[in-house]
Amino acid sequence: MLIRHARRLRIGGLLVGSAAAVLAGVVGCTSVTGGEPSANSRDAPAFRTSMSVSASESAASSSARESERQASLTTQAMHDTCETLSTSSADAIDAVNAYVSAFNQATPDIATTEGPAVDALNKSADAVAGSITDAIPDELKAAFKDWVDGAHATARAITGHAGPAEFNQTIQSLNDTRSNALSLCDATY
């Protein structure tokens, strides 16, 4: 019985406290302030000018941040493809050099160097082609595509057993496209 009585007192206290809080809120919100319900025509032009300047500065700031973001994305895309070209082309050139060395020495194991050279060239070409994005500037994009085409052409020259003159011309072209692309890459850092 004592527990019920204490419980009723708590509930009653909560009800009285809630009612007092609502009443305080209503009484507090009924005060009337003086003033006129019209715009202050003297300050309105300055306010409009301030709002216009603020909106203009906000737009300019937003545009600058977006430009910085786009530049960052472009730089990152260029560096990613440059790194892909640098590492994969080095592996391809090493494999081609092993093939050329075996060819020049007329070793019986030339066939064991042909496959790895062709695979490394195609792997590099595919990796570079796969990393080219629209964010990359056209000049650099063209240099990357030249490498891709040159690597595939060199792979075809190896598998087609091109003669020495044709093969040397293909290799020279491949070296030139690699040098050009890496030179353009160096300029991005």
Score class of each variant (00 low, 15 high):
residue 101 S to N: 12
residue 26 V to C: 02
residue 106 A to H: 13
residue 139 E to T: 13
residue 58 S to Q: 15
residue 145 K to T: 15
residue 63 S to P: 02
residue 51 M to P: 00
residue 45 P to E: 00
residue 56 S to P: 03
residue 127 A to D: 05
residue 186 D to F: 11
residue 19 A to G: 11
residue 145 K to W: 02
residue 165 A to N: 06
residue 164 P to W: 10
residue 166 E to P: 01
residue 80 D to M: 13
residue 57 E to P: 03
residue 77 A to W: 03
residue 106 A to P: 00
residue 23 L to E: 03
residue 88 S to C: 08
residue 62 S to G: 13
residue 120 A to F: 01
residue 87 T to I: 10
residue 157 A to T: 03
residue 155 A to P: 02
residue 173 S to I: 13
residue 51 M to D: 12
residue 155 A to N: 01
residue 7 R to H: 10
residue 167 F to C: 05
residue 90 A to C: 07
residue 33 T to F: 13
residue 17 G to N: 04
residue 81 T to N: 09
residue 31 S to W: 11
residue 169 Q to F: 05
residue 1 M to F: 13
residue 100 V to I: 12
residue 61 S to F: 09
residue 65 R to T: 12
residue 27 V to P: 01
residue 117 A to F: 00
residue 143 A to R: 05
residue 12 G to S: 11
residue 60 A to R: 06
residue 187 A to W: 03
residue 71 A to H: 07
residue 22 V to P: 04
residue 89 S to C: 06
residue 187 A to P: 00
residue 19 A to D: 02
residue 123 K to I: 11
residue 84 T to S: 09
residue 176 D to A: 15
residue 89 S to H: 07
residue 106 A to V: 04
residue 154 T to N: 05
residue 186 D to M: 07
residue 56 S to Y: 09
residue 77 A to I: 05
residue 156 R to D: 15
residue 16 V to M: 08
residue 189 Y to F: 11
residue 16 V to A: 14
residue 49 T to N: 13
residue 153 A to E: 05
residue 170 T to Q: 10
residue 70 Q to C: 07
residue 175 N to L: 08
residue 39 A to W: 06
residue 173 S to Y: 08
residue 71 A to Y: 04
residue 176 D to P: 04
residue 51 M to S: 09
residue 132 I to H: 02
residue 95 A to H: 04
residue 113 T to V: 08
residue 111 A to Y: 09
residue 181 A to H: 06
residue 131 S to M: 05
residue 161 H to F: 08
residue 76 Q to F: 12
residue 146 D to E: 08
residue 90 A to W: 07
residue 51 M to C: 14
residue 150 G to C: 06
residue 142 A to Q: 12
residue 79 H to S: 12
residue 131 S to L: 02
residue 61 S to Q: 13
residue 63 S to V: 10
residue 70 Q to R: 15
residue 35 G to W: 02
residue 106 A to E: 12
residue 173 S to H: 09
residue 53 V to Q: 10
residue 19 A to E: 03
residue 75 T to V: 07
residue 179 S to I: 07
residue 164 P to Q: 14
residue 1 M to Q: 13
residue 23 L to H: 02
residue 109 D to E: 10
residue 128 V to S: 01
residue 154 T to L: 14
residue 150 G to W: 01
residue 28 G to A: 15
residue 69 R to P: 01
residue 5 H to G: 11
residue 99 Y to D: 05
residue 45 P to R: 04
residue 11 I to K: 08
residue 119 D to G: 00
residue 41 S to H: 11
residue 188 T to R: 12
residue 150 G to T: 03
residue 1 M to K: 11
residue 95 A to Q: 01
residue 165 A to T: 15
residue 147 W to F: 15
residue 9 L to P: 00
residue 66 E to N: 09
residue 150 G to S: 12
residue 115 G to Q: 14
residue 42 R to N: 09
residue 109 D to V: 10
residue 51 M to E: 15
residue 164 P to K: 14
residue 112 T to C: 00
residue 58 S to P: 00
residue 80 D to R: 15
residue 18 S to R: 11
residue 49 T to H: 13
residue 92 A to K: 00
residue 110 I to H: 02
residue 18 S to E: 03
residue 96 V to H: 02
residue 183 S to F: 07
residue 176 D to I: 09
residue 54 S to R: 14
residue 179 S to W: 04
residue 149 D to S: 12
residue 28 G to D: 08
residue 120 A to G: 01
residue 68 E to T: 10
residue 118 V to D: 01
residue 120 A to L: 02
residue 87 T to M: 13
residue 79 H to Y: 10
residue 76 Q to T: 15
residue 157 A to R: 05
residue 78 M to P: 03
residue 188 T to W: 07
residue 140 L to Q: 09
